[in-house]
Amino acid sequence: MPESWFHALVGGFMIGGAAALMLLGLGRIAGVSGMSARAAGLAETGPPPGLALGFIMGLPLGAWLVARAMGGVALRFPPSAAALVVAGLLVGFGTRLGSGCTSGHGVCGMSRFSSRSIVATLVFMASGIATVAIMNLAGLS
């Protein structure tokens, strides 16, 4: 991966810039799980649904533009649809129960030095690492 660290750093900077725009422009956390729940009418509190929907619709729009400019990007999904369904259910339920995901706790909360977000990020990373290790041992990945 000769150049991938550079792409990672620059892409990360763009993500942080997007979160900073949300914070300083609209006064809100750019948390994707919270925004999706709000946009889908699955959360009682949060930003105005139209605002949340705008943010969520922006995600694939930005991806489409960059993928076009880069001449396509490689995506390697798990082969089974069942894995995607199980993962989606756990991610959806878990992020709502834990009040955030990689963006809300990881990017926005950790940069605020929120102890809740730092703990949540360490826990979901440890949990993800353990899951991948167990799946590898069991020959599932």
């Binding site: 999904f77 798990p78 894995a83 995607l84 199980v86 993962a87 989606g88 259910l89 756990l90 991610v91 959806g92 339920f93 878990g94 992020t95 129960l97 834990g98 995901c101 990689t102 826990v123 979901f124 990373m125 440890a126 949990s127 993800g128 690492i129 353990a130 899951t131 991948v132 799946m135």
Partner: peptide
């Protein structure tokens, strides 16, 4: 729970 789902897919 989120971490498990993140690791699965």
């Amino acid at each position: 729970l989120f971490g498990i789902g993140w690791g699965v897919a």
